[in-house]
Nucleic acid binder design. Structure first.
Lengths: 366, 366
DNA sequence: TTGAAAGCGCTAACAG
DNA sequence: CTGTTAGCGCTTTCAA
């Protein structure tokens, strides 16, 4: 190891190091406060002074230090988002909305992907807590577990007590009294609507496929599914419900297994479009045509839905808008709102809509 | 507006505010220095003292302030990545690698998506500069523009001078002397290989489709394409090259137009898999079968390649590994490396490989 | 093994 | 309109 240069504590700094507001002030012949004022542009400064400061900044290649700023000021200009898998288009689109809205509010976006692991989620929230993010957004289905909810609730409180906030995006809210916003989409309604679409085409023997068994999203979609049957006073054979996971692979395997098990169904409700892709592959492999032999529907309306042949009938979820709404909710009340009437709902629910394409036809006797 | 409480400047702080190291020190009856030491665990502290401090931290719900830490310390524990579109799987997979490797080094990942706009890219780099990111990674094809390169070079210098570094990922390096790493994949080789695959199947009238005309990626893939012809001493009709954009829509339209123009080709080289998806749609619409009537190849090997029917023959790019390598490169030299032999190449190139699936067949006379 | 104290770079009273 | 100054919360000598 080379000997450290005798770094004195005094004025003399590493000439290589980044310039500070003080360097700029010295060069422009003003005080640091003035420099701060022109940087922030939130306070009157004489035009000539401003020009001098700007010149000095340019000459020195001055770049503000966001951390010093965060420490001295009150906002960090960063929002955090934690998703379970950034390459999953469902999350990617939400993240896109989050980052766009964050940018619009002058903030950067810290993206954390847990790669599936509920423990990691909490760890990321803690990291975001350390970052003093202006808002942290938790996206996607939550494990329905008492203890876990409590742990999240605790973070929500910590966030709130430091002027930040927790936003639950696409997952159920916490108990009353916990300071968290929820930005949801109509999972139950969407599932009921597309199930009804199948029902009105004449299908009643519908295989429901996908979603981790204990995930809130699964629960909600399944509830909508059952609701649609109930609304028509129809029964649904419980053996036609298979949950366990999301994923193309899983959808593929389960479809094959259902076929092998000789399950009696004329349509498949895939819990999301990716699962549907697996369903398509399995059906194709078995020489079954869609929708002639089996009808299929998905959920989410991510790009693969239009790539599949025939194009998949699915439920459109306003993913990007969900992300934007989450940021707005999380930031509300922090920005000195220009509109005093801007009220903040603790819970927002966005609508979903069925997108009819070519994967549903009349049922066939098999 | 409610009147602000008389926030005195002295010791008394907002009781709601986050606890600080000082609160912990007071409660544990030690100095702040000691608390810092147990938090960082990089300095001997008596077991009993440590226990007391840990207890105090727990009791108070202490959460370190990353900004204060960044300001006082030297590393920010954040790496930044700027991509052009986070929902594009090409970038999403790279981002995934980046975030995973960042996490492995104990860092968080700031993801910026420019949504297509070269100016935004520079702006994001500046933001990341303000954040004092430990490394900033610029992903994807660069516009081949002198001035732009100069601007990027300047940022690279600024980054380097503050102990950080710039990594160019999947794009050409800067001029000599500019302190930036480049982590590339073999774009030319991959393009040449898959072109040769087409050539050896008997195709010579190959329509090359896609890529913004002035993007480095386009240039590289096109060069590989031509190289393959040259290697076999074959000519390629320049009218069969159409560049302009990436994107499914673009691929769709251009295919239709090429067909309408009566261009004579037996195969299509789509500059990436997304463009290939558009090509598939157009061909299907015109009743042309793949590969019976037209062969098609893509590039990148993102998930859609296997969703398309017939499955797309394409070039696999080690996207995730590219992201990981970029972080490693950017961080090298910052971490006191345990391995004194760990040398850092200024440029790393990862290999690509042709993945043969079902979209290529022998050419047909039309 | 521990404490005191000097900053890190910036913002925001407060005074002029 | 501008300067002074006291911190923001933490790390890190230096001394004890």
């Amino acid at each position: 190891m080379a000997a450290e240069p005798p770094r004195t504590r005094a004025r003399r700094r590493d000439p290589e190091a980044a310039r500070t507001i003080r360097d700029v002030a010295a060069r422009a012949g003003v005080s640091t406060a003035t420099v701060s004022r022109v940087v922030n542009g939130n306070y009157p400064v004489a035009a000539s002074t401003r020009a001098a400061v700007e010149r000095a900044m340019r000459d020195l290649g001055y770049v503000a230090n966001a951390h010093a700023r965060a420490l001295a000021g009150s906002t960090t200009r960063v929002v955090g988002i934690v998703v379970s898998e950034i390459v999953d288009p469902f999350f990617a689109y939400i993240a896109r909305g989050v980052q766009a809205e964050a940018l619009a509010s002058g903030r950067l976006c810290l993206v954390c992907s847990t790669q599936g692991g509920e423990a990691a989620e909490l760890r990321f929230v803690d990291l975001l807590l350390e970052q003093r993010a202006d808002a942290v957004i938790l996206v996607g289905g939550a494990v329905e577990d008492k203890e876990y909810f409590a742990a999240v609730g605790q973070r929500a409180r910590q966030l709130a007590s430091s002027g930040s906030s927790l936003v639950l995006c696409g997952r159920p809210g916490l108990e009353d009294g916990v300071p968290a916003y929820a930005v949801e989409y109509d999972n139950i309604g969407g599932a009921a609507a597309i199930t009804d679409h199948l029902l009105s085409a004449g299908h009643t023997k519908i295989l429901y496929l996908g979603g981790p068994t204990s995930l809130s999203t699964t629960t909600a979609r399944l509830r909508g599914f059952h609701q649609a049957f109930a609304a028509r006073k129809l029964e649904h054979d419980p053996r036609l419900v298979r949950t366990g996971a999301f994923g193309r692979q899983w959808g593929y395997q389960q479809t094959l297994r259902a076929l092998d098990d000789g399950l009696d169904f004329t349509a498949i409700f895939a819990a999301n479009d990716i699962v549907a892709a697996g369903v398509y592959a399995a059906l194709r492999e078995r020489g079954l045509r869609i929708p002639d032999d089996v009808s299929v529907v998905g959920y989410d309306d991510v790009p693969v839905a239009t790539e599949l042949q025939p194009a998949l009938t699915t439920v459109r979820v306003p993913l990007e808008e969900l992300g934007r709404a989450a940021v707005r909710a999380g930031l509300a009340g922090q920005e000195p709102s220009a509109d005093p009437f801007a009220h903040q709902q603790p819970m927002t629910t966005l609508g979903t809509v069925v997108v009819v394409r070519d994967s549903v036809g009349p049922p066939v006797k098999r």
